[in-house]
C-alpha cells in the first residue's frame, strides 16, 4: 500500500552489472518505500533474477555502475549475510538443495542469527519447534518438512513454500520474491499469497518478480515495472499487469523505442 510521506527503503540509481564480462543490467532505476508492493515483470532473460541476486549480493555478478541505498546505507558495502541481517530477503527462483542439513536446524540457526542481530531473544530447539509449527500452519505445510534436509527432494511448490516460511521467520524489511508463483498450483498459489499478504506491513516492502499476471490477483501491487534487456522500460499501476496479460510485452518495447527515438 502507498503511504503518504513513507521513507524510501530501497533506492536504485543507474545500476549496471555484468556476469562473466557480459553486461546484463544496463542502468536500473527504482525506488521502493516502506509499505509498498512492487511487481517486476518481463520476458525470460530480461534480467529480473540477475537484479534480485545483485541485491542479495551473489558474487557471480559484478556491479559495474550505479548505486543502491538500503535504508540510507550503501548496500554494496554489506556482505550477503549482513544484508540478510539488515533485513533484505531473497526468495530464490530456484531454491538450493542442501542434503545433510536438517531443515529445522537450518531454520533455527538462521532465525537465531537474525534475532541476535536485532538484539532479540534466541529460541531453544523446543521453543523454536512450537514457533515454526505455527508459521507452517499459515502456509499449510506439513511438519514433516522440518526433519528433512533443506529443500532436498522437495517438489517445486514445496521449495517455494519453504522460502516463504523463511520469510515468515526472518521478517525482512525488504522481501524480493523471485518467481515464487512458478511451480505452484492454484490452491498453493492462494495459500502462499495469503501468507505473503499477512506478512506485509506498513514498515516493510515487497518486490514480486514474475512473468505472469496470475499472482497479482492475490497480491495486489502498488506499482508494476516492465523490465527489458536489463532496464525498467515502463512503470504503471496494477492495470499495467492486466494490459500485459492481454496484449503481451511487444507493445511496451515498441512504445519505449518510439519514445526513445522521439
Amino acid at each position: 500500500m502507498i503511504y503518504q510521506n513513507s521513507k524510501p527503503l530501497l533506492e536504485v540509481r543507474g545500476l549496471r552489472a555484468t556476469v562473466n564480462g557480459i553486461e546484463i543490467l544496463k542502468g536500473i532505476d527504482l525506488t521502493v518505500r516502506s509499505g509498498e508492493v512492487h511487481a517486476i515483470m518481463g520476458t525470460n532473460g530480461s534480467g529480473k533474477s540477475t537484479f534480485a541476486k545483485v541485491l542479495a549480493g551473489h558474487s557471480a555478478y559484478e556491479v559495474t555502475g550505479g548505486t543502491v541505498m538500503f535504508e540510507g546505507k550503501n548496500l554494496f558495502e554489506l556482505a550477503p549475510e549482513e544484508r540478510a541481517r539488515a533485513g533484505v530477503f531473497l526468495a530464490f527462483q530456484y531454491p538450493i538443495e542442501i542434503p545433510g542439513v536438517a531443515n529445522n536446524q537450518f531454520l533455527r540457526l538462521t532465525y537465531n542469527t537474525v534475532q541476535a542481530q536485532r538484539g532479540k531473544d534466541e529460541l531453544d530447539p523446543l521453543e523454536f519447534d512450537d514457533f515454526v509449527r505455527e508459521k507452517m500452519k499459515m502456509l499449510e505445510m506439513s511438519p514433516d518438512f522440518l526433519d528433512r534436509s533443506v529443500n532436498a527432494g522437495f517438489s517445486g511448490g514445496e521449495k517455494k513454500r519453504n522460502e516463504i516460511l523463511q520469510m515468515a521467520l526472518l521478517e525482512p524489511r525488504l522481501a524480493i520474491l523471485d518467481e515464487t508463483d512458478s511451480g505452484l498450483d492454484i490452491d498453493a498459489l492462494r495459500i502462499v499469497a495469503n501468507g505473503v499478504n499477512q506478512l506485509a506491513t506498513k514498515d516493510n516492502a515487497i518486490i514480486l518478480v514474475t512473468h505472469y499476471q496470475r499472482l497479482l490477483n492475490y497480491i495486489v501491487p502498488d506499482y508494476v515495472h516492465v523490465m527489458e534487456s536489463g532496464r525498467i522500460i515502463k512503470t504503471g499501476g496494477k492495470q499495467l499487469a492486466l494490459d500485459l496479460e492481454t496484449h503481451g510485452y511487444d507493445w511496451v518495447s515498441i512504445e519505449q523505442r518510439a519514445a526513445a527515438g522521439a
Binding site: 550477503p80 549475510e81 540478510a84 538450493i96 545433510g100 540457526l109 538462521t110 542469527t113 523463511q166
Partner: peptide, 24 residues
C-alpha cells in the same frame, strides 16, 4: 558455492555456512 551463498543470504556468516556444509 551456491549452497554457501544460499546460507549466507539467510544471515549465516561465511564460516558458519562452510562449517554447516562440511558437517553435513
Amino acid at each position: 558455492s551456491e549452497e554457501v551463498f544460499y546460507l549466507k543470504s539467510r544471515g549465516l556468516s561465511e564460516m558458519t555456512a562452510r562449517n554447516l556444509l562440511t558437517y553435513a
